[in-house]
Simulated scan of single mutants.
Amino acid sequence: MKNSVDNKIQNGYSLDLGKIIELSFATFKKTFLISGVAFIIICIVALILYAGYFGLLFGFSNFADTMAQIESSALNATTQITNTLVGAVFSALFGPIIAGFIYVNHLANTNKEYGVASFFDFYKSDKVKDILINQLIITLFVNAIATFLVIANFPIISGLLQIIVALLTFFSIPLIIFGDQNYMDAITKSAQLFIKQPLVIIVSIIIGGLGSMVGIIALCIGIFFTAPYYFSVIYAVYHEAIGFQETSPIDEIGLE
């Protein structure tokens, strides 16, 4: 797959928005129930971890007092730096789960078996190191620059920076799990791939974001089941942009 990725970077590729939407809905329809269950579990775990972090930082005694302390210290430089580092670590730790959501779409598209455990399979994969470091580098860079800009009172520029980095690294995790790239090549090649078809990818991301938010209509509870649609879009874009060999290495060796 490395040669295929390099070929797309050198010669470019075409994207059909209609095919992206069609494939994303096709895989989402197969996975939305199991993805919703996994998403709920992950949200609960994330909530517990973040609550524990803020509790250790500000205390567990009184929730109102804790929230007041968080608000009052929000722009404190020390707090900002601490949150930057902790946020990067949390992002890295959840990176394999993002990979799992994307990969489940591939399993569904290729008619392979999958379950809730499939969303966590990359924690025991030989790709876990690259996924963790990839997410750590991206989040640490974004958070560090964004924190500096917020402290310097440039929140709009901070927001724009985060959007730009998110776009340029759109392909990074798929390139690791499907394209057999290491963490640094995944970041650099993701940016090179993005600039080949930026408009279609941006429109796809917007559609994925809007589709993910549809669940709010169903008393907000439905969002747990529609939010994973965004990962279906990521998979569909990669599928249409890079594609897969008829027998890809990831299908032959699995996640060992």
Rank of each mutant, 00 (worst) to 15 (best):
N76W: 03
F101R: 06
C220A: 13
T78I: 15
L168P: 02
A64R: 09
S35R: 00
A108V: 12
A38F: 06
I223K: 07
N7G: 10
L15D: 04
Y230Q: 11
V150I: 14
M67N: 00
V104E: 00
T82R: 01
K8C: 07
A218L: 13
L17N: 00
K30N: 10
P198G: 12
Q245M: 14
P96Q: 07
I207K: 01
I216Q: 11
H239E: 14
N62Y: 00
I223F: 08
A144E: 06
T31C: 09
F231H: 06
E252L: 15
A88T: 01
L193W: 05
L168H: 02
I216D: 07
F90T: 04
I216W: 13
I250Y: 06
I253N: 14
E256F: 06
A77I: 15
F54R: 06
F224W: 05
F225D: 01
I202K: 03
I40A: 11
I201Q: 01
Y229F: 15
L255V: 15
F120M: 06
L168I: 10
D130S: 12
L193H: 02
I157W: 05
D126Y: 13
S118V: 03
A186C: 00
L255Y: 13
I173C: 04
G36Y: 08
S4R: 11
D16V: 14
I164R: 03
D130A: 12
I20R: 02
Y13Q: 09
F170S: 04
V128A: 13
N143G: 12
I176V: 13
S91G: 13
G208C: 05
I42R: 08
N143I: 04
S204D: 00
V104R: 00
A68I: 14
F25N: 13
S24P: 06
G12P: 02
L175A: 01
G52W: 11
L140A: 15
G243Y: 06
M67K: 08
G52R: 08
L132K: 02
S91F: 12
T82D: 01
T169E: 04
Y230F: 15
A108G: 11
A218Y: 09
Y114N: 08
E113I: 04
D185C: 01
A191I: 00
Q135V: 12
Q135A: 14
F39R: 11
P174Q: 13
E246K: 02
L160M: 08
T188E: 07
A88M: 08
K2G: 04
F231N: 07
E22K: 09
Y183F: 15
I40M: 10
N134C: 15
F154K: 09
F54M: 09
A74Y: 06
D121W: 03
F120R: 02
I137M: 15
I41M: 15
Y183Q: 11
I97E: 01
Y114D: 06
V150N: 11
L23V: 14
S118G: 00
V116H: 03
E256V: 10
Q135Y: 12
K129M: 14
L136W: 07
L161W: 02
G215K: 01
T147C: 10
A227K: 03
L168V: 06
Y123I: 08
F141M: 09
F25Q: 10
E71V: 02
A74N: 06
V200N: 13
I48T: 13
L17F: 11
P228R: 00
F148K: 01
L199C: 05
I187N: 04
A218K: 04
F101I: 11
N134A: 10
I20H: 01
N109A: 07
I156C: 07
V104C: 07
K127Q: 03
